[in-house]
Structures are given as structure tokens and as C-alpha cells.
Design a protein around this nucleic acid. Sequence first.
DNA 1: CTAGTCAAATGAACGTCGTTCATGGAGGCC
DNA 2: GGCCTCCATGAACGACGTTCATTTGACTAG
Lengths: 199, 199
Amino acid sequence: MARNTDKRREELRERLVTIAEAQVRASGLGSLRARALAGEAGCAVGAIYNVFDDMTGLILAVNGRTFRHLGAFVSDVVDARQDTGPTDRMITIAFAYLRFASDNPTLWRALFGVKMSADRDVPAWYLDELGRLFSIISTPLSEVYPQADASEIDLKTRALFSSVHGIVALGLERRISGVPQDRIEMMIEYIIRNVTSRS
Amino acid sequence: MARNTDKRREELRERLVTIAEAQVRASGLGSLRARALAGEAGCAVGAIYNVFDDMTGLILAVNGRTFRHLGAFVSDVVDARQDTGPTDRMITIAFAYLRFASDNPTLWRALFGVKMSADRDVPAWYLDELGRLFSIISTPLSEVYPQADASEIDLKTRALFSSVHGIVALGLERRISGVPQDRIEMMIEYIIRNVTSRS
DNA sequence: CTAGTCAAATGAACGTCGTTCATGGAGGCC
DNA sequence: GGCCTCCATGAACGACGTTCATTTGACTAG
């Protein structure tokens, strides 16, 4: 019995994540509805709660996919430019981050827009994926600062990632600032080139 | 008749904003409830809609206050250090921004966490307040780049504001990165000092 | 002072949401 | 084949923002 049941649960889980991902991509995090989801998946609303703790758990699963796609995309882009210097490679990474956010705005925003009840805490793989992103940045950064220890590299990595993230986040938020994409790229390059060209 | 009515509306409006502000401060944007608000204000739920278009309008009013408080706080702090150089003044501004966000995390987060239906657009005073913040930064920045034109200053201002905003936002988000406050300050100083010490 | 008028205040009702739980039925075990 | 267990089910629940028919009360005209 266990075998058949587990398989069905796993299939339903994947189907729900796929449908939810499409919904978030199309209309944003706020448009997810348990009933619509169950309807599209061909199951009862209650079935969702046999597979996920709650809607937040489902969103976290969607974000897990997005994190992997983002990491793979950025890695691929920078791997194709391993011959360039560390500063140019960091700019490449940041542009790829901007590109992903710009191409998948709703999915990308969902990464940082999950509301979690206080008791629930972030799954370990969430921080793992963020660490993987950090490590993509810290590699060229270590070349810029060959004598820096791990703690210093970690601080500079977080600082640069957060800076680029802020530029992308506010730049894409048309409501607040609304800046053309090429000007966002100019801002990113301005920060990274000036920061990493100095010791 | 009009006089008395308008006065009561204005009083109710202010009372509602004050109560909502306290509620957001205490428990965050997501804890605002129309019924609880009406209960505390001593009015009917429907009365809220005689004064505001909807809950989003009320939140925007709260954010308006927060924007003014933030602007006044940052201005006061930097005004007390007008004797220092432009780079040090920019670090002072950024530290003040961090301090405000850290002291009023829920109100500060509400500034960027409002959900608005697509048709509604940002009130003009919202962008005005943001422009006021920008101008606080662009003043010392113009001293760093005396030969830069307005468009270039605008781009660098947005880039630096967004960078600091990103560092503060991700640094305070204990869920995602969670960094001690002094390390956040180190990140800010790292970015600003390196960016503005170069041409 | 009284009657009339009309906008503003009211709160029950509505539609929708995430979540739960008693129930019915499908599927493994003897 | 009969029993029993366990899971899918979807109606029900409580809470939410918002609406609207009704009541209220302030102001004016006579």
C-alpha cells in the first residue's frame, strides 16, 4: 500500500508546484488561490493539505525551484566568461541576476515576499540556496582581495550582493522608482567597478 | 453644516491613521484589521470607507507619516554634521537610514510592502517624499562629483540609495540573512567609502 | 418651534479566502 | 469474500475586506 500511496502523493505534489509556479509567473504571488489550484490539479482542496502544511509550504516549494533556476542561470552565464578578470566577472554575475529578475519578475519577487507565521522558520535548503548564490560571488571577489580572510570575504560578498539586489529591486519596482533597464545596468556597473577597483 | 461635518471627518481620519500606525508598529502591516480598527476608533466599519477609499488608502496615509518622520530624522542627523566631508556625510546619512529602519522595522517595511491594485497608482506625495530623500543624498554627492551633470548625479544617487537600502533590507531580514547591526554598518561603509573615494 | 429634507453614519449581509474535519469509499490483508 | 484501515473528499467554519439598505440626526424653511 505504502508504495502506491507515496507515489501518488509525490505526483500530486509535483503537479501542484508546477501549476502554482505557472500561476505565480502569470499573475504574481497574491493571485494564488487554493480552490483554483485544486480545480486545475483535479483534486479536492483538502488534498493540498495532505501534501503541504499550508499554502506557505507550497510557495516555499515554488521558490525552491526558482532558486535553483536562478542559480543555474547565473552559473551558466558566468561560466561562459571564465576568461575575463574578476571585476568583469562580477559585473557579468550581477547583470545575469538583473536579467533573471527582469525576465521572471513575479517569480523573483516571490522569493522575498513570502509571509511566514512567526513559529515556522526558514527551511535549511532555503539558506543553502542563498549560500550557493553567495559562493558564486565570493569566488571572483577572493581574487580581488587575495589577502582577505573568510570573514572579510563573507562581509564584502553580502555587501555587494545586497547592493545589487537593492538596485534591481527598486529599479524594477515601477511603482516606486521605475528606471529603464540600461540605466539599472549603469548603476550596477558604477557600484561594482568602483568598489572592486580599489582595495 | 459642511463645517461641522468636515471637521468630524478630519478628526476621524487622523484618529484612524494614529491607531493604524500604532498597530503596524506593534505587529506589522499584515495585522491591520478593519473591524479592530473601527472598534478602537469607536466608529462603525463602514465609517472607514467614508474617509478612505479602502484599506490601502489608510496604509498609504500611515506611510506618509513614516516618510516624513524618516526624512526629518535623517535630515536632523546630517545637519548636525555639516562640518564633515561629503563622504563622511553620506555615511552618516546611510547610518541614520539604517538606524531608523532598525528602530521602526515594521513601519519601515510597510513603506515598501504595500499591495496596490493595478488600476490605483502611487499618490504624487509618495514620489515627492522619495525625491526629498534622494535630494538629501545628492547634495554631498554633488560635492564628490563637481563636474557631473544632473542626470549623472541622479543615476549615482539612485545607485547609492538602492545599495544602502538593499544592505539594510536584507540585513534586517533575520529570516534570510540575519546580520548583527555593526556588521551592517561595516557593509555600508565599505560600499560608500570605496565608491565615493574614487572618481 | 415644528416639520421636512437629505447627507452621513451604521452594522448586518455578501462574497471570498485559507483551513479543517466528519464521512464515504477504495484498496490491502487474512 | 469480508473486514478494516486509511486517505481523498468537499461541505462547513471563521475571518476577512467591502458594500448598501436603513436609520439617524443636523440644518433649513416656514
